[in-house]
Amino acid sequence: MNTIYSLSKSEYYAPFPLLRLNDDWKVVDINLAAQVLFKPILHNGFNESINQLVAGFQPHALGTSASSNYANLNRDELKDAVTDTVNGTIDSKEYGKVNFKLTIISLPSLNLENSLERIAYAEINTIELDETFQDNFQRALQHQLIWESYAVSYDFVLNEQDYYREVLNRHIIALSENGINRVIDIGAGTGNVTIPLLEAGRSVTAIDNSRAMLDKMHYKLSAMHNPEIKILLQSAEDLSEYPDNFFDGVNILLALFDMVDPATALNAAIRVLRFGGVIIITEPKKTFDLSSLLYQAKKFLEEKGLYDKLSSHWACVTRANKKIDPSKKSSLFIEDIEERLLIAGFEVIQMKDSHFGNCATLWAIKSG
């Protein structure tokens, strides 16, 4: 195993504190350990439930006077951050009783006047079934690190491949038709579909559970002027914050195959798509052969004279793909997806092979 994916149980990977909250006490960021810890505890939609959990601490934070009077202050008048500590206990079916100390730091927003940003740090005192939590966290961490590594080389290699650019064009064309204004991009990655849609004037909600991939998208977005985008670092299996029939278009490009529960994510995508809306999905076929795909992609780079230049990136892409090989883990192939969409009343407009015949793109309209 390459050491980039290997960490001991004593090592803790947390690029952000436990939670980051906005002025309305809504969670806007949550780290991986918190996702693993809280997910079995919460029974409604994950985002909704974690917001409810945090709301329970709201009366403590800042103190009554500071929180009630802050709207009348400007940032210059608040010289210091305000902190508050709360001890809490939560019960989890999977991890038992969890005792922790939550410290919330409130400080003036750097971007908005008369607004607060809050960061929540948690010190876990005890977890009744700590070994179970550590095992689950390590599995989630190893998976996350695969995508962290993949993100470094993803665009360098994929954007040079004709087959990949062809698939991107299919998705962009399908979601650029008249009447498609609001799009949800599930598994948005580095933004290779999202950004052209933004440039075409669409409003995009981009969802991905890889921080590294979304960091690449953020960098690209920095060159755009006020794009109409909402970026969510979360699993697409929970879209409970969106009502039925909310989006005009759904984009899914090689995202379902790597999910724990792809059927739930697909059902959520179907629910939030309006009648008459477009869904376009590229996913592996049942005959997917990773070795064949890698051979063809490498051969293409060699024929273009790019392999030597991209050899280190190619090695990274190869390692990552072997870790997430759809033929070994996917439970929902494109043939299954087509069947489910037909049962749900969709009209399939087109089904076309991609990735040297290892995947296929399905373009469908939600009838009703």
Rank of each mutant, 00 (worst) to 15 (best):
S367G: 06
S291R: 14
T205R: 08
D84A: 14
Q58G: 06
V27T: 14
A269G: 04
L341M: 05
Q134R: 15
K216T: 09
V348G: 08
L239I: 02
G189L: 00
N44L: 00
L332I: 03
G179F: 00
L112D: 04
N47P: 10
L18P: 11
A66Q: 06
S222C: 00
V152M: 01
D23W: 00
E335M: 02
D325K: 07
S330W: 07
Y242L: 01
L78P: 03
A33K: 10
T132R: 12
V348F: 06
F57H: 05
C359Y: 04
L42H: 06
Q35V: 10
H218I: 01
L293N: 07
N192Y: 02
H171P: 14
T318M: 11
H143A: 12
M217E: 12
Y164D: 10
K97S: 11
N226Q: 11
N125E: 14
E228S: 10
A265F: 00
I186G: 12
V152F: 02
D244N: 14
G63L: 00
L42A: 00
V86C: 06
L332D: 06
N2S: 15
G63W: 04
N114C: 07
A188T: 09
K285P: 03
L362V: 09
E160V: 04
N159F: 03
N169Q: 13
D80I: 02
H143T: 13
D289N: 12
E339P: 05
F356A: 09
V348N: 10
I186Q: 09
A34Y: 07
N251C: 05
A81T: 10
D162P: 05
Y13T: 09
T264K: 15
K299Y: 13
D76F: 14
A255W: 01
I127K: 01
D258T: 09
L158C: 05
D238C: 01
E302G: 09
N99P: 08
L158H: 05
L112N: 06
N44I: 00
D135R: 14
I105Q: 12
Y12V: 10
H313T: 11
L341S: 06
I124N: 11
G277K: 01
N181A: 02
S115R: 10
K304V: 03
S67Q: 13
R202A: 02
Q35S: 09
Y150S: 06
S65Y: 15
D244G: 05
I30M: 11
I337A: 09
S8T: 15
L73Y: 11
F356S: 15
G249Y: 00
V348L: 13
Q52D: 11
A188C: 10
V86R: 09
K39H: 02
L73D: 05
L102A: 12
A265E: 02
D84P: 05
S149N: 11
A61N: 13
Y242Q: 10
